[in-house]
Design a protein around this nucleic acid. Structure first.
Length: 481
RNA sequence: GGCGGCGUACCCAAGUGGCUAAGGGAGCAGUCUGCAACACUGUCAUUCAGCGGUUCGAAUCCGCUCGCCGCCUCCA
């Protein structure tokens, strides 16, 4: 079984073979930190987080870098609007981004370089590009001469001559060709700047990723990821810069691009005012539901964030943990049980098969919920025929092990059920003591066959979002999502 | 205009040449329950936007038509 992934560069699925056996270098474009991160950043981060997790699950030693672009036009503009230094704005948003990622259960990449910490390399790469004739200095700015790079357009499928007709030409710029893009921009007073052979200035948008790649991962990396919108011009330009500067091609051997998140069928945009920040989403939904939602489509497809789809994800998470909770209640000593190695391998095979097919997490979830039903079915059967307990336990041990493996890969559905339920319960509008007291009162009423009173208690709790479930072992409560 | 993608049940969504078109949600009918909730069972696409072609065989490949979307400009 081999891992196959869709390479944007070749536009087809390819078998994944890292350049060094057992070792993977991966770079994913991180945020430009001019504002709080929105749900689209979450999709990219979660998609590549799962890829990172899975590569390690497969036994690869993964070097994974995700950058912060912390110097840029938008940051400067926004900082000016707020009347604070751009460094302060960037730092504030980096902290916020890190918090959001942690809240989403996204693991830390092994490297998290910042553009402003890579200036030396940026200057070095820019100088090299000038020396090699791919770039030129013009009035304190340095531009990349797109026409000098033979393979320009190979990632995005664009032809230079067709680009020209649509290109915007800024007459104030010192470009010799409108398609050329800035590697280095001379700074205006008050802007962040660094010394360079071309005077005080700051890096252009694309060069920082090239520099960080070369500095942290080398001239040729295995996987380069990012949102689909970055294919052009950002990734196209990264290729042009990197391959021209290092002479090593390809710059990245596999290009992976995640699809967009729409909000109620519409693209997120400032003009529509429907940009959903990660922290706003997390106020309304658990991180596990958000992850499950994001992973319920293949990572390359667009996905629609709607009230319904998130509610569905909540329901799925709850169903999963209810089942896990039931397993723990029925088999309290299961944690010490070890499933047979071969049997487990067989059980996990469909999950790996799905993951190996371009990280098909939707299929993984389908498989997972098939096993959830299976677990409940056999526990139901055991209730009717207790003599089946031993056989059931063996099967449940396997299913539980499968849950664990899958949860590790997906980074959700991997907690202890009581941890999940305690989190849900903490959102209760009523004090838990008060709820317990009412449950007691209802139990008393039920014992006395005063069902009118019992239902009254249950209904009044439901009005406050508290759902009661009568189990054989007693009544439990949870909060309506 | 150039490039790319998509259209599978009421909704979300796997499947991209050959076993019965995964899975979830909603609905309906049952089992369980004092009644519910949870859970389970059954039901829910003779058919994959439409038309034509290739093939022994197509949701899957090709062509055309219709509809939707993205990129080409800052964007995950």
């Amino acid at each position: 079984m081999t891992l196959r992934l869709y390479n944007s560069l070749s536009r087809k699925k390819e078998e994944f073979v890292p350049q060094t056996p057992g070792r993977v270098t991966m770079y994913v474009c991180g945020p430009t930190v001019y504002a709080l991160s929105q749900i689209g950043h979450a999709r990219s981060a979660v998609s590549f987080d799962v890829i990172y997790r899975y590569l390690r699950y497969c036994g690869f030693d993964v070097e994974y870098a995700r950058n912060y672009t912390d110097v840029d036009d938008k940051i400067i503009q926004r900082a000016n609007e707020e009347g604070i230094p751009s460094e302060e704005l960037a730092e504030r948003n980096i902290v916020a981004f890190d918090e959001d990622m942690a809240a989403l259960g996204v693991e830390l990449p092994t490297k998290r370089p910042k553009a402003t910490e890579t200036i030396e390399k940026i200057v070095e790469v820019t100088s090299t590009l000038i020396e090699k004739g791919f770039a030129y200095e013009s009035g304190g700015d340095v531009f990349y001469s797109v026409r000098k790079f033979e393979g320009y357009g190979k990632l995005s499928g664009k032809k230079i001559d067709e680009l020209e007709s649509g290109a915007r030409i800024n007459i104030n710029e010192q470009k010799s060709d409108p398609l050329d893009f800035a590697l280095w921009k001379s700074s205006k007073p008050g802007e962040p700047s660094w010394d360079s052979p071309w005077g005080k200035g700051r890096p252009g948008w694309h060069i920082e990723c090239t520099a960080m790649n070369i500095e942290h991962l080398g001239p040729t990396i295995d996987i380069h990821g990012g949102g689909k919108d970055l294919i052009f011009p950002h990734h196209e330009n990264e290729i042009a810069q990197s391959e021209a500067a290092t002479g090593a091609a390809p710059f990245a051997r596999y290009w992976l691009h995640n699809g967009f998140v729409n909000i109620e069928k519409e693209k997120m945009s400032k003009s529509l005012g429907n940009i959903l920040n990660i922290r706003e989403a997390l106020k309304e939904h658990t991180y596990e539901a958000i992850r499950l939602f994001l992973l319920s489509n293949q990572y390359r497809s667009p996905i629609d964030y709607t009230q319904d789809s998130l509610k569905e994800a909540e329901t799925a998470v709850e169903r999963f943990y209810k089942t896990l909770d039931r397993i723990e209640a029925e088999f309290p000593n299961l944690s010490s049980a070890v499933p047979g190695k071969e049997a487990l391998k067989e059980r996990v095979a469909p999950v790996l098969e799905a993951m190996n097919d371009d990280f098909n997490t939707a299929k993984v979830l389908g498989n997972l919920f098939k096993e959830v039903t299976r677990a409940n079915t056999i526990m139901d059967a055991m209730r009717k025929s207790p003599e089946k307990r031993e056989v059931t336990q063996e099967e449940i041990t396997l299913i539980r092990a499968l849950f664990k493996e899958t949860g590790q890969i997906l980074g959700t559905l991997d907690r202890a059920p009581n941890e999940y339920f305690n989190e849900i319960k903490s959102q209760s509008l009523l004090a838990p003591e008060e709820i317990e007291r009412l449950i007691e009162e209802r139990a008393e009423a039920r014992k006395n066959k005063d069902f009118a009173r019992a239902d009254e208690v249950r209904d009044s709790l439901l009005e406050k979002g508290i759902i009661l479930e009568d189990k054989s072992t007693g009544t439990i409560w949870t909060v309506k999502q």
